[in-house]
Design a protein around this nucleic acid. Structure first.
Lengths: 221, 221
DNA sequence: CTCCTATGCAAGTAGATACTTGTATTCGAA
DNA sequence: TTCGAATACAAGTATCTACTTGCATAGGAG
């Protein structure tokens, strides 16, 4: 007789499974290996076999700890996004920095993080993420935008929240555009680009504070 | 006896093959179909089978006209890159526009092109291109950079060529960063982003012209 | 010790997709 | 009309890679 609801043996990833110390270490080692390979090859070129090989385990072992490739990328992306958001929130907690100083610090923190975790870029740009990882990623963007929006409104309280958020979003776009090049630039070219990043963002934002509504846009030369 | 160098029948793409009128039309139809599918699905999600289906031919027919998927992407990307470079070079051929007007026109031309050919973006960003297509793409970037560098030096002849090129490159990065969002923005949000694009680039460039070397960077607020 | 569960892997499978083969048909020039 | 070359496609193949299976070992709670 065929059982009505057979209890299948767990031969593949099980979210309820408990891990012992060895298992926890393997999982961390797999994440480290994945980070290294994603950083070298990008998301699409990276195979689960390559991650397993980098960690020194068989492909099957990988699937004891993660249900699929996307989950590995998502776990890394979530961790990084939370770390980076945390670092951003820690900037100028005493509120002693000027607008320019605070924004410069924000940019530096974000650039440093991306240099420290080169794989972060490909993970958030190329990888299909789980919904929770997507949320962490979106929160990260929002923290950046809110930081700038809050600082803008501290300088110019008459600025509407939506205008402030818009300018924060544009600053984020500029950041990403230059970051794309920064990740592939030669070490020699980097300092100049970092300075260009600060200039580009601050020169975009400062007129928001100094120009009245009448002269919002750039005047002809 | 086995022939020393058998002349194989051409059953697959042959670069020396001559095309008749029907063939030329098929090839163009395949390129149009590819453009449509690339635009809908992006490069990676697009399959050669889908392109063939869109063009109403069998997958085998596609390979009579292109050696592989990359060649299709490369052909499109090359065409677009040349078209866009041409459009950029045509801007202000009489030299009557001011710096701000000329740069604004450049930005508008580039934005319009990307809206008219939504697949261009995924092709140059995601697709692995042939070396000749990569060259066309790089030339396109250079045309953008040179346009701005030339205009900067026309306003400020003391600016070195390398400095001018650097600022052109940064302008291009800003353009790309905002363009990424523009391609996914709702129609309602687009005009505001387009204005932000102009502001971001011009606000970055204009201080290059007005600030002396002593005060190159943004002052503290 | 005992037994359940976690860990581990050799050796697969499954499914997707870029690309071919063999053959039939159409075109166009001589 | 004739014949080689170009066009067309049904029906594949080849390969890659995410993922599984079955089974062997290790480890900790009782």
């Amino acid at each position: 007789m065929i059982p009505f609801c057979e209890n299948p043996l767990v031969t593949v990833f099980d979210p309820n499974r408990k891990h012992n110390a060895r298992g926890e270490q393997r999982q961390q080692a797999l994440l480290r290996a994945a980070a290294a390979v994603f950083g070298r090859l990008g998301y699409h070129q990276t195979t689960t076999n390559a991650i397993a090989a980098e960690a020194g385990v068989s492909p099957a072992t990988l699937y004891q700890f993660f249900p699929n490739k996307e989950a590995i990328a998502s776990a890394l992306a979530s961790t990084y996004a939370r770390e980076m958001a945390e670092a951003e929130r820690a900037i100028d907690s005493e509120g002693v920095l000027s607008f320019t100083e605070a924004v410069s610090e924000l940019i530096d923190v974000c650039m440093s993080f991306n240099r420290k975790r080169p794989e972060f870029h490909t993970l958030v740009v190329d990888a299909p993420l789980s919904s929770s990882a997507r949320e962490d990623k979106q929160v990260l963007g929002q923290v950046f935008v809110d930081f700038i929006a809050t600082r803008l409104r501290r300088e110019l309280p008459t600025l509407s929240r939506s205008e402030a958020a818009h300018h924060g979003q544009v600053a984020l776009m500029i950041f990403r555009g230059i970051l794309d090049e920064l990740t592939v630039a030669s070490p020699h070219a980097r300092p100049r680009l970092q300075q260009a990043m600060r200039n580009a963002i601050l020169r975009y934002l400062i007129p928001v504070l100094t120009e009245s509504k009448a002269g919002r846009t750039v005047k002809g030369a």
